[in-house]
Write a protein that binds this DNA or RNA. Structure first.
Lengths: 206, 206
DNA sequence: CTGTGTGAAGGCTTTCACAGCC
DNA sequence: GGCTGTGAAAGCCTTCACACAG
């Protein structure tokens, strides 16, 4: 694997390109130009080309990119070649909705288990995932090789739950709690903050 | 209102600062240093100070910032002084969860109505919002002054629904569909793509 | 002639270093 | 002494311009 440093923003866009390629594939297209792919991903053609050069050359001049080949290389770079197990912590409204959301499985993520303060059999059946009590979190993480967590607990317990998860070996957190988590350097956090996104939009329509 | 151009990223961070200030206020703190506020918002102190200089001076040297005063100025800049009505389109799993999510109302956004292909009375009661059929979308937008929309429909209809909303006057869209929407310049889109966030995390733990 | 690959230029953001004020 | 405000420097990312391959 190439040890080249790929800029954060480029990595993010690689996922967009991958998505667009999947759609192209579904439509029976097997060659795309940087212009077409860039439009589908919402970026400029030069940027797409520059992004791709970070890890090699794939295009055929005068023609474009081979869809299958480029997607394969992208999954490889992104580390999504294999199924990645994930846990979800906090099965409230948002957490439950995410468990039912088909997008995760579709993109290669399997929710190994969900955790909640008050797990119920019925809930578990409804959601199609085992829902364990919060007290089993550490034990579960130690017993299974899960590195990623989706955090959908209330803000006031988010940091505490995070500390526990990190102690038990979690490396990456997708955080929906509206708070900035303090974590050590080896742990990655991506924040999704719905209220902030709305607030941000409201600024631009003033 | 100052017509200064504030960088996109700064605007985004202003929301983070605002959040942190609210927490400080709740804890009875009325003066914070840039260092403390920056930590709470997950940024560096110099960046916070630089961000604030885009629209004035607020701090007292040797002391810090007045919490109440700074929050007031931030709501003003962000345009969240008044309640901002929003519609939600697509009341599936994710859409329903968002309607029940207390974070929106808390931050000053009111969901004026939700739209779905198959609205039901019971659903509406459950969600505490009126759920109208998709066919009423245009009519509703024309009759009410709503500029912002949360889009939680399946990807394959997202662009079409978007076109309709824009025709009817929508100016800003918070898009959860995993697709890049093509919109005219005067319309702002913020994308929230859960699968991509996970994919992104998985890259960093390779 | 079409469309990729890429050094160089340009633009935007962050960080530094320190002057200024309480 | 402590902490803000800010020009200047550094770093990062995007865009341009054009060489080059099919």
């Amino acid at each position: 694997m190439s040890k080249l440093i790929i800029p954060r923003k480029t990595v993010y866009r690689l996922s967009l390109y991958y998505r667009a390629l999947q759609r192209a594939k579904a439509n029976g297209i097997d060659t795309v130009s940087s212009a077409a792919l860039a439009t589908a991903a919402g970026v400029k053609p030069t940027q797409l080309r520059k992004d791709l050069t970070y890890f090699g050359q794939f295009g055929t001049r005068g023609l474009g990119y081979n869809v299958a080949q480029l997607s394969a290389r992208l999954t490889d770079v992104l580390g999504t070649t294999r199924l990645q197990p994930v846990i979800l912590v906090g099965a409230g409204n948002l957490g439950s909705a995410l468990l039912k959301y088909p997008g995760f499985a579709k993109e290669g993520f399997e929710v190994a288990a969900a955790f909640d303060l008050e797990p119920s059999r019925q809930r578990a059946k409804e959601l199609g995932v085992r829902v364990l009590p919060m007290t089993k979190l550490t034990e579960f993480l130690r017993g299974n090789q899960v590195k990623m967590a989706i955090l959908t607990v209330p803000a006031h317990v988010a940091q505490e739950v995070t500390n526990n998860m990190i102690d038990a070996g979690i490396m990456a957190i997708l955080n929906f709690a509206p708070i900035i988590l303090q974590v050590p350097d080896h742990v990655v956090v991506n924040n999704v903050d719905l209220a902030i996104e709305l607030e941000n939009l409201s600024y631009f329509i003033q």
